[in-house]
């Protein structure tokens, strides 16, 4: 009966529903500001439909997390690229600084060394090195135009390199101490025994004219004696590596040069005081 009446009287239903809703609202507005404001009916509706907002919140939160994760990843990737660029740049800078530092140290040593000499000196760079053949030579970038003369001594911070044997206006050829034709007046630092150091073309030099009874031991330092009119006194030539009885009255002494000729870069040219030709002519 009621089921038949309601469809035919929707306006009546409408009024009843509105009245009920008005009562519901009145109750709700009365309890709105005190304690547990939610009525049982309201809580039921909320419970029924609560999965929807929960799912939305979960999906929203997940999407937000994913988005932030993606942003963080992008940021990390960019940061990584930036750091890689920085590392590359700093590595290059580091290499340059190390090179500069090494150059500085080498040049400082060279400068201190050149101050030892009371003769005029000048700096030069090697532009060619030939230590492979029997004739050992280097070419430096200073020539007669810069005051370089034949027989000027060439040294670096480690010791004696050789002497100038040929000059052009802007280049000079240097004969190394290891050259077959090189001969240097030398002395043993410990005992002050003098002799002659000659190159043998193999990279090792030999000291001659040291008597069999002379006190020479491996490790002794050999210096220039300053008696040949070319090399100033006291420049390190090398260290004795072998000292043994020779075939005659002299010892056979092998000396390892103190300069590594494969690594020569900057050198000092010592403008040696030349012995006047008149003096040479009347020399014994």
């Amino acid at each position: 009966m009621a089921a038949e009446v309601i469809p035919r009287r929707p306006t009546l239903l409408f009024i009843v529903v509105l009245s009920l809703l008005f009562v519901l609202m009145s109750l709700s507005s009365r309890t709105r500001y005190i304690g547990d404001t939610r009525t049982l009916f309201e809580r039921t509706v909320m419970t029924l439909f609560s999965p929807v907002p929960k799912a939305v919140n979960w999906a929203g939160g997940s999407a937000e997390d994913m988005y932030h994760g993606y942003l963080d990843m992008r940021r990390a990737v960019n940061e990584n690229l930036e750091l890689r660029r920085k590392v590359a740049s700093l590595t290059t800078e580091n290499v340059k600084l190390r090179q500069t530092d090494s150059d500085l140290r080498r040049l400082r040593n060279l400068l201190q060394y050149s101050e030892q000499f009371n003769m005029q000196t000048s700096m030069a760079h090697t532009i060619m090195i030939d230590t492979s053949g029997r004739f050992k030579a280097v070419i430096i970038d200073r020539g007669s135009g810069d005051g370089v003369e034949v027989n000027d001594a060439i040294v670096n911070a480690n010791g004696l390199i050789g002497r100038v044997i040929l000059t052009t206006n802007d280049l000079a050829k240097v004969q190394l101490v290891t050259d077959n034709n090189s001969a240097i007046g030398a002395l043993i630092e410990r005992t002050r025994r003098q002799g002659v150091v000659r190159g043998d073309g193999t990279g090792i030099v030999e000291m001659h004219d040291i008597p069999t009874l002379a006190d020479v031991k491996p490790g002794d330092r050999i210096l220039t004696a300053g008696i040949d009119g070319i090399y100033p006194k006291g420049i390190p030539i090398g260290n004795v590596i072998k000292a043994e009885q020779g075939p005659n009255l002299f010892k056979h002494i092998e000396v390892r040069p103190s300069v590594d000729f494969g690594t020569i870069e900057e050198v000092i040219v010592i403008h040696t005081r030349k012995i006047p030709t008149e003096v040479v002519r009347y020399a014994p």
Partner: peptide, 18 residues
Amino acid sequence: VQDAFSGAIFGLHAFSLT
């Protein structure tokens, strides 16, 4: 449903929507 998930008086939107 709108009332349950909003801060309105419960039944307000139900009334107006009806």
